[in-house]
Simulated assay, not measured.
Amino acid sequence: MAKGFILCADDFAMTDGVSRAILDLLGRGKLTATGAMTNRPHWRRLAPELAAFAGRADLGLHLNLTCAAPLSPMPRLAPAGALPGLKEVARAAVASATARAEIAAEIVRQLDAFEEALGRPPDFVDGHQHVHVLPGVRRALLDILARRYPAGALYVRDPADSAAAIRARGVAVGKALVIAGLAAGFRRAALRRELHVNRGFSGVAPFDPQRDFGADLLRFLVAAGPLHLVMCHPGFADEELRELDPVVATRPVEHAALAAFAPPPDMPLRRFRDLLG
């Protein structure tokens, strides 16, 4: 039985507006985790503000291989200096040993950037657009984490759940099923390396600004797993976001709904370690 759930905001440091919205929600106690894009130029400036929430929320790395620029040159994957889209990363990670080597090196750089700014390892690692579970990426990531950190020191996000749970929630069902299929085997691979993994995942959304996101938050708790994680994407829209990411209009909607959200009494907001017991 679920003892509560983690509510995690993705994309910290993507833009100033996204980051300010997340910091606002952390300050209100409305989130229990957030993942940071440490390749973004906002990261070092905003990291001290995020560090203030250590111990109150899980602070993690939101591995980014598909948005803006890498931390160092990646001639095979990003020859012009900009990271490609998800489909190109997926193809290259399977087809090219050179691309896989570049991805592994970028994973290390992004982890280094997290630790250098916060002075501590991440509480968890996940991926922008779930890139961390892609074949050709997942092995490199999990091997690096297993070598770099003690067993059980952090957790990784498994963005899969059962088809029955996904259908019961009734939100972006097709999209959630595709992501679950993409993540097949990820949990087993992480556990083999003695990495913690969430059990239960929701938050896949259609990014429709006309939807009632507050109602969707309650739907995301249907058939919750024992280590359940709900992702979200709040933000304040600005010109930088409009130029960088297709998800713009729904971010302020999510922020407002999260600010007003009161979890059910039997499903409190928790950090991952609290759910582990």
Rank of each mutant, 00 (worst) to 15 (best):
L31F: 07
R28W: 06
A237D: 14
I144K: 02
P226R: 12
R147F: 05
L244S: 13
A256K: 07
G277I: 03
L241F: 05
G55A: 13
P79E: 06
E254S: 12
L227P: 14
W43Q: 07
R273N: 10
G214R: 06
R44C: 10
L83D: 00
A223I: 00
P263Q: 11
D266N: 13
A237I: 10
E116Q: 15
A78I: 01
V222F: 04
L111A: 08
H255A: 15
A117R: 09
H255N: 12
L50H: 04
L218C: 11
A33L: 05
K87E: 06
V131H: 07
N198Y: 06
A9K: 06
Q129Y: 00
D126G: 09
P70M: 03
L7K: 04
P121K: 08
P206M: 13
I103M: 04
L269S: 05
A190D: 02
P41T: 08
G170I: 07
D208L: 14
L63A: 11
C67S: 14
D161W: 04
A68S: 03
D208G: 12
L61T: 13
D123Y: 01
L182K: 09
L118F: 14
N64R: 10
G29L: 05
L63N: 02
F213M: 03
A163N: 02
A51Y: 01
M37C: 00
G85N: 15
P121S: 11
M1Y: 14
A223V: 00
A54N: 08
L134E: 07
A237S: 13
A140I: 03
C8T: 03
M74S: 08
R157C: 14
K3L: 12
I179Y: 02
R219C: 07
A90Q: 09
M14G: 13
E115S: 07
A13N: 10
V248R: 13
